[in-house]
Design a protein around this nucleic acid. Sequence first.
DNA 1: TAGTAAGCGAGACGGTACGTCCTGTCTTCCC
DNA 2: GGGAAGACAGGACGTACCGTCTCGCTTACTA
Lengths: 210, 210, 210, 210
Amino acid sequence: MVTQSGKPAPDTARRSERSRRAIYDAALALVAEAGYPKTTIEGIAARAGVGKQTIYRWWGSKADVLLEAFLDLSEQAARDAGAPDGEPYAIPDTGDLAADIKAVLRATVDQLTDPRFEAPSRALAAEGVVDEQVGREFTAKLMEPSIRLYVDRLRAAQEAGQVRADLDPRIALEFFISPLAQRWLQYTGPISYEYTDTLVDYALHGLAPR
Amino acid sequence: MVTQSGKPAPDTARRSERSRRAIYDAALALVAEAGYPKTTIEGIAARAGVGKQTIYRWWGSKADVLLEAFLDLSEQAARDAGAPDGEPYAIPDTGDLAADIKAVLRATVDQLTDPRFEAPSRALAAEGVVDEQVGREFTAKLMEPSIRLYVDRLRAAQEAGQVRADLDPRIALEFFISPLAQRWLQYTGPISYEYTDTLVDYALHGLAPR
Amino acid sequence: MVTQSGKPAPDTARRSERSRRAIYDAALALVAEAGYPKTTIEGIAARAGVGKQTIYRWWGSKADVLLEAFLDLSEQAARDAGAPDGEPYAIPDTGDLAADIKAVLRATVDQLTDPRFEAPSRALAAEGVVDEQVGREFTAKLMEPSIRLYVDRLRAAQEAGQVRADLDPRIALEFFISPLAQRWLQYTGPISYEYTDTLVDYALHGLAPR
Amino acid sequence: MVTQSGKPAPDTARRSERSRRAIYDAALALVAEAGYPKTTIEGIAARAGVGKQTIYRWWGSKADVLLEAFLDLSEQAARDAGAPDGEPYAIPDTGDLAADIKAVLRATVDQLTDPRFEAPSRALAAEGVVDEQVGREFTAKLMEPSIRLYVDRLRAAQEAGQVRADLDPRIALEFFISPLAQRWLQYTGPISYEYTDTLVDYALHGLAPR
DNA sequence: TAGTAAGCGAGACGGTACGTCCTGTCTTCCC
DNA sequence: GGGAAGACAGGACGTACCGTCTCGCTTACTA
């Protein structure tokens, strides 16, 4: 089988693993050091000690490279953090929904302020805002897995009667993650454990007086 | 007082209004037609029938130009829409908070899907994600005014006892706008009146059963 | 009367002498310091503390400015060097043609290596090579007067029988000045008193054996 | 050995001959059509169908390009005109020095008035007047070879006793070429066969009566 | 086990845009 | 009305990257 493009698909079997890794490392390092716009394909190639064509052969754009590099970084981090195989991770269910969500959000806050992650994920998010294709891919590959965890946990809470039964979990979870995401993406406010804890309280009990 | 910069500040009094308008128009048109990354300063200058230097004299970057152009567009739209002077606009207070917020959010949905606004605001938002300075300016000039309206309306609701008295309005309002913003920015879900109506209901009454 | 150009001729009577002098000085200084190509009209205006328009009003080009500035410098130098009025100078006639010419050429050598003169006259000469109009003006205003002196001296020598009677003085004088000019203009050889003395000897007595 | 420059020297082996030729042609054509100052690097690149960087990669300046282009043109003309290998040309020696030099000068007059040669060589000469480095290169590469021919012919004449034995040929030859050069460069007089013939006569027999 | 074809490092190429500098015109305000 | 000041449309500068290409080389499949 051959891809739709005019070019014959390159032979993946003969691909240089060495070069791929070097390109990931170079891309992440450059984005962290100089920012996404100043990161160039030529720069990545030079830093990785790789010909430009090797990049163009395997990726379609700078965003593509960075997306894969970041995905790789995330998997690696996940692997380091415990789960060695393909992410059978779940939000813990201690029976206390509020506490469980708060814990996850605190971990998210930590990750959002980790400099190793911040630059590339901002870059990808920005690219995704402007380029719908990148945006959808970013969402599907990087956000959807986490979203699903929230959905699962919320459904469990629904079954346990801790959450209204008529709730759409895919909307409900946005009360936890969207405000945080917006503050982070758009500098609309500071990010802290206290803030995310408050979010959970407000969300669960509503803004209106009981 | 004199600005810190090395260049002598240009004389604002002699600025060509004609060129400024032409640059705004060209910038908005190009972003709408070709997208932000393919919009170049040279392109704006050419389309506006203006020397490049005239752009560089008054703005520091492509993002700067677009930000001002968009700001101008917004003001113009606001002026056309009724309030002729500096936006003494407020979220209506019919006594029914839910209805009032829903109405505003429906208007926001309309604006987010208006092609005239979509391209430039996406572009600016994306630039803001990646360039903190732009981000803060974007937030301060374009989002802060709207945010303040929500804060005012929420405070009125607090005084009327329709909202918990201990609530921080600056956090509370995020339940209305952040989920919508994220869906719009990151393609995490569809946007509709039904969706925003649901947001308001969930937010006011909480996710937990009453 | 109005010049052929579309613009009405500016009123010479109201012209600012102060600015003219400042422009001459600035032009000569800049050419000496930075070279002709790096000397710009803007630079001259800025250095002279003069508006650009003042230059464009009175001169047609950078070469024009420099030509007048240099002319003015030459006249001033001539005035300082003795003859206070319009150059009633002549090559001395001691009866010894060879000695007289040698003396004049030695003075020319001095002038060609005087740094005050070198930069602007090279610049003008170069411009004249490439722009025929400037070239002819340069020749007419700066070289022709000197050439005439040679012609006069050679005619006197002809009458005194020291030079062949059938000689065209306008060609003969080129044996004295052209080799020197070429060495100076084109770096085809070193310039010295010894060299110019030799030129005179060879020219007068011919290359062929007697 | 490595050049002193900061940039890594480009790989001459991979240079595009096609582009080089196109650049030469474009440069010569533009100089002939529009004159040297109006000939721009961008213009050459556009006309040659070449990226600007390709010019900047191989040449240091507009003058450099033109110098090489003109050199190439001269070699090509020489090759067309007979001598296919590296110019083993010499001024003919018929025994009659005057006649031989006159013939060569007449050819020079033809060349100086050939429009194909005139524009670029004037341009280069002018640039050489103002930029010593260019001037020396111009002299070394374009004039020195011809000069050497005169030196050789004059030495032969010296050995044959047709020219004074104590003569410095490098000075003597200037009587033939410098007056012509000056008239051509500086528009100090007309150029014709008659004129160059006269030069030879005056030079050989001297200005003084015999 | 040799032959061959793909991936690879390298980097020249035709291009486009950058941000700067200068041109020659124009407008404004001062004298 | 001349002059200082400087904004303007325009255009070239020299640089940096883009994405394509061609060159030898290395490396892994195929005959």
